[in-house]
Computed example of a mutant assay.
Amino acid sequence: MKAQIALVFFLCITITAAWAQDDRGTGAWYMYFGNLRPADSPFSLHGEIQYRNHNMIGDLEQLLIRSGIQYNLPDNSATFTLGYGYIGSEPVGDEDFRVNENRIYQEALLRQGVSTVQLLHRFRYEQRFIDGQDFRTRFRYNLFINVPVTAKKFAKGGVYVALYNEIFINGERLDNIPLFDRNRLYGAMGYKLRDNLGVQLGYMSQMLNSRNQGQLQLSLHHNMTL
C-alpha cells in the first residue's frame, strides 16, 4: 500500500509539472553529485557538475560546477557546507554570448526519518558575483522526500520515489529584482546501483516570475568513503 501511494503521488507531481510548462518546450538537465569522505573523519568533500539544456540535447542553457568542504555531525543528523560554484549561462540559440557567475555559498542539511521515509531540509545562503560587476545574495530552502518502494529500501537494488520542492528568495529587493526568485517542484524514480551509488530519472517544473519551464532530469548520486 505504501508503494502504491508513493507511485500515485509521483504521478500526480509529474502530471502537474508537465501541465505547467511554457511554450518553449521541455529542457533537460544531466547531473552528477559526488561526496568523498575519509573513514572516521567528520569532514568530507562535495563536487557536482550539471549540464543544463534549453531543449533535450545540444542547446546549452547552463553549465554549473560546484564544490564544497563539509562538516558532518557524529550522528550524521546534519551536514554543514562552505563552498564555491561557477555558473555559465547562455540565451536560447546564442552560443556567442555567456553570462558568467561566481558563487560562494553556505549550507545546512538536516536529516530526519519518519518510519522508512527520508526527509532532508536544506538551507542555503548564496553570494553571487555576476560577470564580475553585479553582486546579489539569495536564500534557498529545499525539502527532499525519499520514499522506498521495494523491500531493499535504499540499499543496492532498491527502488524509491524522490520528491522535492525548493523556493528561492532574493536578498535584495530592487526595481528590477523582485523578492521571489523561483520555485522548483520535482518528482523522480530512483534506483540504487550500489549501496553508495544511485540514479534518478525525473521531471522538474520551475516557476519563475514571468514563465514556467519544465525539465527532464537524469542524475547520478555517489557517496565515496576512503
Rank of each mutant, 00 (worst) to 15 (best):
K2L: 15
K2Q: 15
Q4R: 07
Q4P: 02
A6N: 10
A6H: 04
L7F: 04
L7D: 10
V8E: 12
V8Y: 05
F9A: 07
F10S: 05
F10D: 04
C12V: 14
I13N: 09
I13T: 12
I13M: 11
T14S: 06
T14Q: 02
T14D: 00
I15M: 05
I15W: 05
T16C: 07
A18I: 10
W19M: 14
W19F: 13
W19Y: 13
Q21F: 10
Q21M: 11
D22N: 15
D22Q: 13
D23M: 14
D23S: 15
R24F: 13
R24H: 12
T26P: 03
T26E: 01
T26S: 01
G27E: 01
A28R: 02
A28D: 02
A28S: 11
A28Y: 04
A28I: 06
A28M: 09
A28F: 06
A28T: 05
W29T: 02
Y30H: 01
Y30V: 07
Y30I: 08
Y30C: 04
M31W: 00
F33T: 03
F33W: 11
F33A: 00
G34M: 10
G34R: 08
G34S: 08
N35W: 11
N35T: 15
L36N: 05
R37T: 11
P38S: 06
A39R: 10
A39F: 14
D40I: 10
S41T: 11
F43A: 08
F43G: 09
L45E: 02
L45C: 02
H46Y: 15
H46A: 14
H46F: 15
G47D: 00
E48N: 06
I49P: 04
I49W: 01
R52Y: 08
R52H: 03
R52L: 11
N53V: 05
N53P: 01
N55I: 13
M56H: 08
I57T: 10
I57D: 09
G58K: 04
G58H: 04
G58V: 07
D59G: 07
D59F: 04
D59A: 09
